[in-house]
Design a binder for these strands. Structure first.
Lengths: 196, 196
DNA sequence: ACCTGAACACCGTTCAAGT
DNA sequence: ACCTGAACACCGTTCAAGT
C-alpha cells in the first residue's frame, strides 16, 4: 500500500529526493493557499529549480494528479470495502460522500478534477482510473437494486459531484448541496416480485 | 425594456459607439470561442485600443456581467410571468431550466457566474440582483407549497445550478445533470390538512 | 542523468502621451 | 472627455549551459 509515484524506471537518489520534495511542497502550499499557488513558489519551497520541477511534473496538471494519487487509492480501497455492504444504495451514497470530501481536499482542486474527467487523456483521468472502475461496481449494484437513477454512468456521477462549488460546506467539510444530488439520484426501492 | 448599459451619466457619442462595439465583439467572440478569448482580441475585433476597452470595462468580470445583463433581464421577466402559474413547483422548475440554459449560453460562462455569486460584491452578483429577487418569490412559493426542499435558499440554488459542468448537454443545450438536481429538490406534495 | 536559472510566451491591467 | 499603444506584472513552460 505504498503511495509513492508510478512504478516506472527507478530514479537516481537525488532525483527521487527532489521529486519527493516537490510533492511535499505542493501538498503544503495547496493546503494553505489552494491550488492556484504559482509553480514558481512550489519550486522555491521545495528548493529546486524550474528545470527540475518540470522534469518531474511536465505540467501543472501532472502535479494535480500526483497530489491526488493517494486519495484516489484510498477511495479505490474504500469502494472495495463497501462492495460487501448489504444495502447497495447506502454503500454507493457513502462512497460518494467520501469522494466529495476528498475531491475538495484542497481549495479549487475539485474543479480541476471535474474538468480533467472531461478529457479522457488527461492526467487526472488516468489517475482516477482504478478508483473509477471500483466505484463503477458500486454504482451498477445500486442501479440493479432499483434504488438508483439508471440514467447516469460513473463518469457523469464523478463529474457532477466534483463540479459542486467549494462553498456551502459545513465545518466538517461536507457539502449541503451534495445532499440534493444524492437525493436526486435516489429511487424508492421497488417491492420484490410477488407473482409466483 | 431597453437592455442597453446602466442608466449612469450619458456617454459622448463616440464613447457610446465604442462601448457598443466592444460589447458586440465580446458577444461574437464568446459565442465562437468561449469566454476565455483574450481581452486583446476583443479590443482588436471591436477596433479600439486597450485604454478604451478598460475604460468601459475595468475588468474582465465587468464584461462577463455586461454580456449577461440582457439574459438576466429576460429571466427576471420570465420569473414574473411564472409567478402566476398555478403549480408552484412546475413554475420554479421551468424557471430553473431557463436559468440553466441561459447560464451556459457561452462556453465557460456559467462557471464564472457560479463563482461570482460567491462574492456578494462582484459585478455578476450585482447584475443578478433583480432577477434573483424575482426568482426568490418563485422559490418561496414552491417551498410554501411543500413540494420543494426547504433547506436551500435562492443563492444556493443559483450557485448549484450554474456550477453544473458544460458537458452533459443534449443537442438542444439542456443538461441531463440538471434533472438530477431538480429531482433532488422536489418533494411529494403533502395532502391538504383535513382535520376540521 | 540530472540540475540551475535566464529567457520566452501569454494575458490582464495600467499609464503617459495625445486629440 | 475620451482615445491610443507602449509598458508592466504575473505565471506557465522551455532551453542553453553546467555538473
Amino acid at each position: 500500500m505504498s503511495t509513492t509515484p508510478p512504478a516506472e524506471p527507478r530514479l537516481r537518489v537525488d532525483a527521487q529526493r527532489n521529486y519527493d520534495a516537490v510533492l511535499a511542497a505542493a501538498h503544503r502550499l495547496f493546503a494553505e493557499h489552494g491550488i492556484d499557488v504559482p509553480m514558481d513558489e512550489i519550486g522555491r519551497e521545495a528548493g529546486v529549480g524550474k528545470g527540475t520541477l518540470y522534469r518531474h511534473f511536465p505540467t501543472k496538471d501532472h502535479l494535480y494528479a500526483a497530489v491526488s494519487l493517494e486519495r484516489f487509492a484510498r477511495l479505490r480501497d474504500r469502494a472495495d470495502e463497501l462492495a460487501s455492504q448489504a444495502d447497495p444504495w447506502d454503500a454507493l451514497a457513502s462512497w460518494v460522500r467520501d469522494f466529495d470530501l476528498s475531491a475538495h481536499h484542497y481549495r479549487g482542486l475539485s474543479g480541476r478534477v471535474s474538468e480533467g474527467l472531461g478529457r479522457e487523456d488527461s492526467e487526472v483521468s488516468r489517475a482516477c482510473l482504478p478508483m473509477r472502475a471500483r466505484a463503477d461496481v458500486l454504482l451498477r449494484r445500486a442501479q440493479d437494486s432499483g434504488e438508483m437513477d439508471p440514467n447516469i454512468d460513473i463518469k457523469a456521477l464523478l463529474t457532477l459531484v466534483s463540479s459542486l462549488p467549494d462553498s456551502y460546506r459545513d465545518g466538517d467539510g461536507s457539502s449541503n448541496l451534495l445532499d440534493v444530488v444524492l437525493n436526486g439520484l435516489h429511487r424508492a426501492p421497488s417491492p420484490p416480485p410477488t407473482h409466483g
